[in-house]
């Protein structure tokens, strides 16, 4: 970029906004997201009632151009629905190149989209921004990691999709003994249990030193399903305070990767 644009807090361009758009839709369970441009990449964070925090993270190597001013914090609140809609403005069948500009605090986010198949067509979008609230810091540095699992995303999605919706509690039992992973759901009268040994081909890696039982609200777990549907791999980490971190990897055709990340707060014992 020339000097004219260096006054911008943040500029980025990308050949296709399609994957970014589907990633945004995967975490679109709240109206607004915190948009944060870091030197390493772009991160959008959505929170639900201080229980679930979801982020879409796009490393800077996904962009053909990526500039962030290093002397300021580039962070603002934006409607994620509007942003996703703008990225998809030429319809889902159309690949369009994308440029993003953000001049400075209080100014709108500018998007310039150009469809690849049609010449001389261009859309200029301006999305109003708001000053960001602080993002919840759920990670506790003192709490150590008690278990880590790497799973194939499509198979894990199939598993979650089969869980009875009316159940409220999702209980995860992890143990070094067989069966290593066991998911229990409690319905009105019935109990269902899914056992998954670490030898299963949907488990790519498993590490757990001592048995642990964690309970989450099933509805919170279900928020990851849209993101699972577009991902290839999921890393599940549990820390000693019960906090679950799910990192989902999305691989694009050009071998570059985008990520989504979910922090889920456990249910406490009565």
């Amino acid at each position: 970029m020339d000097e004219g644009t260096s006054q911008y807090y943040f500029t980025a361009s990308m050949d296709s906004g399609k994957t970014l758009c589907s990633l945004l839709k995967a975490i679109q369970f709240q109206e607004t997201a915190v948009f944060c441009a870091l030197p390493e990449g772009l991160k959008l964070t959505v929170e639900e009632g201080k229980c679930v925090q979801a982020s879409a993270y796009v490393p800077s190597d996904n962009f053909t151009e990526y500039h962030v001013r290093d002397d300021v914090d580039v962070m603002f609140k934006i409607s994620i629905a509007v942003l996703a809609e703008c990225l998809n403005i030429f319809g889902s069948g159309e690949e369009s190149s994308l440029k993003m500009y953000y001049r400075g605090e209080g100014s709108p986010l500018l998007l310039v989209l150009q469809p690849q198949s049609v010449n001389n067509v261009m859309t200029d979008c301006e999305i109003a921004t708001q000053t960001a609230d602080s993002v919840l810091e759920l990670r506790d540095e003192d709490a150590e990691e008690v278990a880590k699992l790497v799973l194939k995303a499509p198979a894990f999605l199939g598993l979650l999709a089969d869980l009875e919706r009316s159940c409220e509690v999702f209980e995860l039992n992890l143990s070094p003994e067989h069966p290593n992973v066991s998911i229990v759901t409690y319905g009105m009268q019935d109990r269902s249990c899914i056992d998954m040994p670490k030898s299963s081909d949907m488990v790519q890696s498993f590490s757990c030193e001592s048995p642990v039982t964690l309970r989450y609200q099933l509805q919170h777990i279900r928020t990851i399903m849209k993101a699972l549907a577009i991902s290839t791999k999921v890393v599940l980490r549990c820390s000693s305070n019960g906090l679950m971190l799910l990192q989902l990897k999305l691989e694009k055709e050009d071998q570059r990767q985008m990520f989504s990340e979910f922090y889920i707060v456990p249910l406490l014992d009565d």
């Binding site: 198979a155 069966p179 009268q189 109990r191 269902s192 899914i194 056992d195 998954m196 040994p197 949907m202």
Partner: peptide, 11 residues
């Protein structure tokens, strides 16, 4: 498949 065992305890 994948060595998964689902058990349903039905009342």
């Amino acid at each position: 498949r994948h060595g998964i065992v689902k058990t349903h305890f039905v009342s």
